[in-house]
Write a protein that binds this DNA or RNA. Structure first.
Lengths: 168, 168
DNA sequence: CCGTGTTTGGTATGGTGGATAACAATTATC
DNA sequence: GATAATTGTTATCCACCATACCAAACACGG
């Protein structure tokens, strides 16, 4: 019992730990590394983080980018339709749109047919920003994923995730 | 111009749209379906949703389950260590632990070596709940994923996500 | 032994996303 | 024309994340 009294310095006792292996060793993930949900969320956070970095010059979040993409591909739709396809609840979609509109990236236009609904359209500035954002996403963000997984790996990953998103 | 005045019923005019295809047709996802981040998040939400369903009898969230798993695999660790490995900030980890401790699933024990830190341990009840949760996760949650992707598909998915989570 | 700096758990607080209730204006339905 | 449904919106609430700060306890250099 040479070191029963001495509390054993907690910082740098990775010398010859006499009694037991109990020092600054990594926490074991254990079965957590096999939990698909856990790894899935971790990966998602990383991907979003990188997305934000890559598209930072344009100050666009993933959600904002997805709205611009949808407006470009679906001109003439109203807020409810766009929000629904993105899985965003209408009340929460309002402020999102407010920010985009205040930056003059899109506009709400009262529909002539149904004066309740707002037709959403990209402005010219919005189209420009979207085009530049697309280039950044493809050339930086997705390119890095391609580099990490390989083109076919990325394809396979996308296919499986799509399957989960749609059929699970 | 037979229907220029009539506003064309918005609900069920999926008959013969005379003028243009402008009715209740699905919003096009467009390039969004190729955005890995988008599909990744969608899939993650679905998986978490299913996790909650499967483990609902035990009232455990993914985060709570991951804590129990880590405590089981790493007895004798303190809050900072557990929180760090889960990517949870210490302040936010407090209430999480509070809820687990109030349900008597784990306990905080003052360390004898370092009276600042709290050693975290599963209670017997906690071990029981964890064991039952594991069974539910494996037999219901992960089983469903296996069914959807196939065992090798699941393995491949897990491998790619792990790569992203660690190396991206 | 003592003073300085660091670590640990904790509180307070702000920001963001998601979810529900309710409402006025408008439209659909019968 | 009365009733029900829809659209955008506000107000709230809750969960999660992030930062600043604090007291207690520890580490370390003199």
């Amino acid at each position: 019992m040479a070191d029963s009294a001495k509390p054993v310095s907690k910082r740098d006792s990775r010398r010859e730990a006499a009694v037991a292996v109990e020092e600054t060793q990594a926490v074991q993930l254990g079965e957590l590394s096999d939990l698909l949900g856990y790894v899935l969320k971790r990966a998602q956070l990383k991907v979003f983080e990188d997305f934000l970095r890559c598209v930072a010059p344009l100050q666009l979040t993933p959600a904002q980018f997805s709205v611009l993409l949808l407006l470009d591909a679906n001109p003439g739709r109203n807020q409810t339709e766009i929000a629904n396809t993105l899985g965003i609840l209408r009340p929460n979609f309002v402020s999102l749109l407010d920010s985009l509109e205040s930056r003059e990236l899109c506009t709400r236009v009262r529909s002539a047919n149904d004066r309740r609904s707002h037709i959403l359209m990209l402005t010219e500035k919005g189209k420009g920003v979207l085009a530049r954002a697309k280039k950044l996403v493809v050339s930086k963000h997705e390119a890095r994923l391609n580099e990490l997984l390989g083109p076919d790996g990325r394809e396979a990953l996308l296919a499986m995730l799509t399957k989960i998103a749609e059929e699970f």
